[in-house]
C-alpha cells in the first residue's frame, strides 16, 4: 500500500471537492439543522450562543482589565472582538475532529462527496459567528465605538481564514477518524493555544524578543487579520503573507492526505 496518491486518486479527490462545494443546499441544510436541533427545546433557543459568549466576555473582561490595568472602556471592546473571532477559529478546529465520525451512518450507506460534511462544519460555525456578532455590535454601542474604514479588511481576512479552515478541517477530520486519540489531543492543545494567542492580551505586551509566539502561531495570524480591522487597524502586508504561507503549508499537507485516504474514511468509521 503506497502512501502516495495515484492519478485516479487525485482525480476523484478533485471531483469530491467540486461536487461537494456545489452541493451547497445539502451542507447549508445540514448546518442549519445542527444548530436548530441543538437548541430546539430551550426557551432562548440558539440565542444561548450569544448569551454564553456574552457571559464569558463580561466575566473575563472585568477581571483582566484590572489584572492588565487597562481601562474597561477600551479593554472590553478589544476582548469582545477577539473572543468572537477566536470562538470561530477554535470552533472549526474542535468540530472538524468529528466531521466524518459524526456522518458515519450516512457515509456507510450512500456515495456522497466527503467535502459536503467539511462544509457543514464550516457553515455551522459561521452561523455561530453570526449570533456572536450581535455582542460586538452591542459592546460597540455601549462604549460608543465607531468602526474605522479599516473594517472593510474583515472580508478578505475572513475569506483567508475560511480557506485555511477548509484545508484544516479536511486534514484533521481524516486523521481523527483513523486515530481516535487525536480529538482529545487536539482539544487539550487548543486550550493551550488560547493562551498563546493574543485573545486576552495585546501583541505589544509581549515585547520584541517574544514576537515569534505570534508570528509562528497560525491562530494568531488568522485572529489578527480578522480582528485588527475591527480594532480600527490596517493589518500589515506581512500578516497576509503569513496567512498565505499557512494556507500553502496546510494545502501541501491536506491535499495529498485527502487524495490518498479519502476513500478509506468509510473503512475507518
Amino acid at each position: 500500500m503506497s502512501l502516495f496518491p495515484t492519478r485516479a486518486d487525485w482525480r476523484r479527490a478533485a471531483e469530491d471537492l467540486t461536487q461537494g462545494l456545489a452541493a451547497w443546499h445539502i451542507w447549508s441544510l445540514l448546518a442549519f439543522n445542527d444548530i436548530r436541533q441543538r437548541y430546539k427545546r430551550s426557551r432562548f433557543g440558539q440565542f444561548w450562543i450569544t448569551l454564553s459568549t456574552g457571559i464569558f466576555i463580561a466575566g473575563i473582561g472585568i477581571v483582566y482589565s484590572y489584572l492588565f490595568d487597562r481601562p474597561i472602556e477600551t479593554y472590553v471592546p478589544y476582548l469582545s472582538v477577539n473572543i468572537v473571532i477566536w470562538t470561530l477559529l477554535a470552533g472549526i478546529v474542535t468540530d472538524s475532529t468529528g466531521v466524518f465520525t459524526q456522518a458515519g451512518h450516512i457515509l456507510g450507506q450512500q456515495a456522497m462527496p466527503k467535502t459536503i460534511f467539511v462544509m457543514r462544519v464550516i457553515v455551522r460555525q459561521l452561523i455561530i459567528l453570526a449570533h456572536n456578532l450581535v455582542i460586538i455590535a452591542l459592546v460597540f454601542m455601549l462604549f460608543g465605538i465607531v468602526p474605522t474604514p479599516a473594517v472593510v479588511m474583515v472580508v478578505p481576512g475572513l475569506l483567508l481564514a475560511l480557506v485555511a479552515s477548509l484545508l484544516t478541517a479536511m486534514a484533521i477530520g481524516l486523521l481523527c477518524t483513523r486515530f481516535r486519540d487525536l480529538p482529545q489531543i487536539i482539544q487539550s492543545l487548543l486550550q493551550v493555544a488560547f493562551f498563546l494567542t493574543p485573545v486576552m492580551w495585546h501583541t505589544d505586551q509581549l515585547g520584541g524578543q517574544a514576537s515569534y509566539i505570534v508570528d509562528f502561531n497560525p491562530f494568531a495570524v488568522f485572529l489578527l487579520i480578522v480582528a485588527d480591522p475591527l480594532h480600527g487597524q490596517w493589518p500589515g502586508v506581512e500578516r497576509y503573507l503569513q496567512a498565505l504561507a499557512v494556507i500553502v503549508l496546510m494545502g501541501l499537507v491536506a491535499a495529498p492526505l485527502f487524495a490518498r485516504f479519502r476513500a478509506r474514511i468509510v473503512y475507518w468509521l
Binding site: L107, G108, Q110, A111, A263
Partner: peptide, 11 residues
C-alpha cells in the same frame, strides 16, 4: 450492495 451504492470504494 454498499459497493454497488458507491459508499465503499473497493480496496
Amino acid at each position: 450492495l454498499r459497493v454497488l451504492a458507491g459508499a465503499y470504494e473497493p480496496t
